[in-house]
Amino acid sequence: MTSDARNPRACILGTGRALPAAPENAAPADAPLDGAATEASAGNERRRAAPGEKTSDLATRAARAALDAAGLGPRDLEMIILATSSGDAPMPATAVYVQQKLGAELIPSFDLSASLTGLLYGLAVANQFVAAGTLRHVLVIGADLLSRRVDPRDRAAAALFGDGAGAVVVGPAAGDGRGILSVSLRADGKKADVLQVPGGGSAEPLTQERLADRRHTLRVNQPELRQATEERLGGQALAALAAAGLAPADLDWVIPHRADAHITALLAERLGCPKQRVIGALDGGSAAGASAGSVAIALDEALRDGRIQPGHRVLLCALGGGLTWGSAVVRM
């Protein structure tokens, strides 16, 4: 079986999300922020997981909600893909804990690391398996607890990242034109240091000195990250639209990994669509700082509150560490 934009073979059958119960302010009141951090924190709260709450806990909750929405159970699944940069432990993959907590069969379950673009990378993998007829139902989850990777002294980074999980169930399309129309992905390893956790791997095993230097926490070059977002996100969105045989005017909604006022205006201008069609952080409940979970969280929120209706064409896009970036066009 093959898939094309006019006759998609795979579609999103259901979505779900899970957020920590209590939102917290992005930074202490006595910590004035500037630039992107001020914009991100204005009128927006980042949710922090409770003590003892793990990435697999949020991922499992989001997965259950997505399965319920799809009218399926855990034993209907044939693969679990978990996109995360903050798993429960370095080894094993956090996806196996989700498999265990869901009560799924002994199916392939693995983690995928592509930072904020992880959900889209996972969606691309699931789309290939389902479109080829190899698998019938694949669960894709984006989940992160980046509040535990942020240096608490780095208030600007704390303003940008929070905790949350979003999930989608990918299955066969019904032949009515709805489904995954295109996925377009890119990466640039030359920019790997723009968003990274340098310590804790084989390059920098943790030592007392590196722990003291906070090398195990998130490092963000915010000016370069913002510049990359401005340069790459809109262009990749247009590439995904072209692959789907669509023009920007054909879109009903745009969901980026974060949608502060600047990014909203930039995407709307590049795509020639109203800013009101860009869904994200400023909508309130969406956890735009939840890294790999952000896009799926916003998608689920908009589906459940009725903004996204059956047949709507939705553009999903994200850029994160790697650098990685990508877009997907889906007809819901």
Rank of each mutant, 00 (worst) to 15 (best):
A259K: 04
G289E: 06
G289H: 14
G285N: 15
A292E: 05
L282G: 02
L267C: 01
D260T: 05
L266V: 11
S291T: 14
G285Y: 14
L271R: 03
Q276V: 06
A259T: 11
L271P: 09
R258N: 10
D260W: 05
A261L: 11
G285K: 15
A287S: 14
R258A: 00
S291Y: 14
A265N: 13
I279D: 01
L266N: 09
A292L: 06
V295S: 06
S294I: 00
S294P: 07
K275C: 01
A288H: 04
D260I: 00
H257K: 07
G284M: 02
V278P: 04
R270N: 02
V295M: 06
A290H: 13
R270L: 09
L282W: 05
A261Y: 04
L271Y: 02
A259S: 08
A259E: 06
H257L: 07
C273T: 12
D283I: 05
Q276I: 03
D283L: 08
E269W: 00
H257R: 12
D283H: 07
K275P: 08
R270P: 03
G284F: 05
G284N: 09
I263W: 00
H262P: 08
I263V: 13
L282C: 02
A290Y: 11
R270I: 10
G284W: 05
D260H: 03
A261W: 10
Q276W: 04
P274T: 06
V295F: 06
A287Y: 13
V295Y: 00
D283Y: 03
P274W: 04
P274K: 06
V278K: 04
L266Y: 00
R258I: 07
A268P: 11
H257V: 05
A259W: 10
A290N: 12
R277E: 10
L282R: 13
G272Q: 07
T264L: 07
A281M: 12
A261M: 11
A261N: 04
G289Q: 14
G289W: 11
I279C: 08
S286R: 09
I263T: 09
D283T: 01
